[in-house]
Simulated assay, not measured.
Amino acid sequence: MKLIVQIPAYNEEKTIAQTLRDIPRKIDGFASIETLVIDDGSIDDTASEARKAGANHVVQLKTHRGLSSAFVAGVDAALRLGADIIVNTDADNQYAGADIPKLVAPIVRGSAEVVIGDREVARSPHMSPFKRMLQRLGSWTVGLASGVRVADVTSGFRAFSREAAMQINVFNPFTYTLETIIQSGNRNLGVQCVTVRTNPPNRPSRLYHGVGSYLRKSIVTIFRIYALYKPLKTFFLIGLLLILIGTAIGARFLSHFLQGDRGGHVQSLILAAVFLIVGFQTMLIGLVADLISVNRRLSEEVLVRLRRMQAPASVRRERPQPKSTETEQPQSNETQWVWLVDEDKLDEAQPEGPAPGRRRRRRRGGTRQHAELPGNRGKHLAEEGD
């Protein structure tokens, strides 16, 4: 098996070398371990420092595109390089590279396809109590949207099997951490968590400028991805809420109307009508979005097949055949499974003579169109004699 550790990096010339040195070079079960650094348009010497530190592959983006784009570029490059398992880690050496064997172990055993490194933020001394509370709240919310329980949803230390990496598509330019978990849950990929160690932080986070900004972007990301995979349920619930509000306002107007107050409260009637109409239209939008999602799923299947076709020849292994303990027998004329591609070629492969063991039935009477056929020889010679 081949393991590729990808490291998205942006202006990390001071820490990229140490991050690469901490990655183990030998892990049981892997014949090859390679490192891949994605330089996200850095303005310093991140790429050259990565080459000096012994990075096997360096992908340089011409401009700074963000963490999600660098992650996607790394996954695409790792798949093209023939990786069986892909590990993603941060370039600031936040995660202990010695825990990579623990991270990939569930995938090697076949018990998971996506493994998330749990930093145990509830007991982390590097986070404030307020951030710990937000972390637990975010993990609970992502668990509801994805259907899987992940203790540390924002952890960037994670491993993907080749099959899982081919099925993951990141659309959000903000971050890939939340989106990949929700996608994995909705695609029924096996997700597990393992406890990992972390190193003391050497700089503040560059992903967001404050807690408010991070919270706002995270809520938008969760809602967007959940609506993408479950549009009918999302818009139906929103539409149902609007209809209930409109019904309550309409009931209030009806109550006053029945009590004899028929001259006022017209505004309540108008507002109730607006809520009912908008709620009904929202449900229709959910129905249309659900129909459109079918085309999205078909497009994703095409993309997965395209990625499989672009894989190196060494990865496209044939299915191993079971070894037979009996002596090989001469090939018999048993039925074989074939792919019927061209009927003309299949006809050319048929034997010219009658099938063995079957007696040809002689045709009597009627004109023959081809004199060269065996059944027409007598008639052909008789015509020449005349």
Rank of each mutant, 00 (worst) to 15 (best):
N199Q: 04
R203Q: 15
S205R: 00
S205N: 02
R206D: 02
R206W: 06
Y208F: 04
Y208H: 03
G210Y: 02
G210A: 06
L215Y: 04
R216A: 15
R216M: 14
K217V: 02
S218P: 01
V220A: 15
V220F: 14
I222W: 05
R224A: 15
I225R: 03
A227S: 06
A227C: 02
K230M: 02
P231Q: 04
P231R: 01
L232C: 04
K233M: 14
T234C: 06
F235A: 03
F235P: 02
F236A: 11
L237A: 15
I238V: 10
I238S: 06
L241H: 11
I249C: 01
G250A: 10
A251V: 11
R252W: 13
F253P: 07
L254D: 03
S255D: 03
H256G: 03
L258F: 09
L258I: 10
Q259M: 05
G260D: 03
D261M: 11
R262H: 13
R262M: 12
R262E: 12
G263E: 12
G263P: 09
G263W: 08
G264C: 06
H265I: 10
H265M: 13
S268K: 09
L269D: 02
L271G: 08
A272G: 09
A273C: 05
V274W: 00
F275C: 08
F275M: 07
L276K: 04
V278D: 00
F280P: 03
Q281A: 12
T282V: 06
L284G: 09
I285F: 01
L287G: 06
L287I: 11
V288H: 04
D290A: 13
D290M: 11
S293A: 11
S293L: 00
N295R: 12
R297N: 06
E301P: 08
E301M: 15
E301I: 13
L303G: 05
V304L: 06
R307W: 00
M309E: 13
M309V: 13
Q310T: 07
A313S: 12
A313W: 00
S314C: 04
E318Y: 09
P320Y: 02
Q321D: 04
K323N: 13
S324N: 15
S324E: 13
T325W: 10
E326D: 14
T327H: 12
Q329M: 06
Q331T: 13
T335P: 08
W339R: 15
L340S: 08
V341L: 00
D342A: 04
D342V: 01
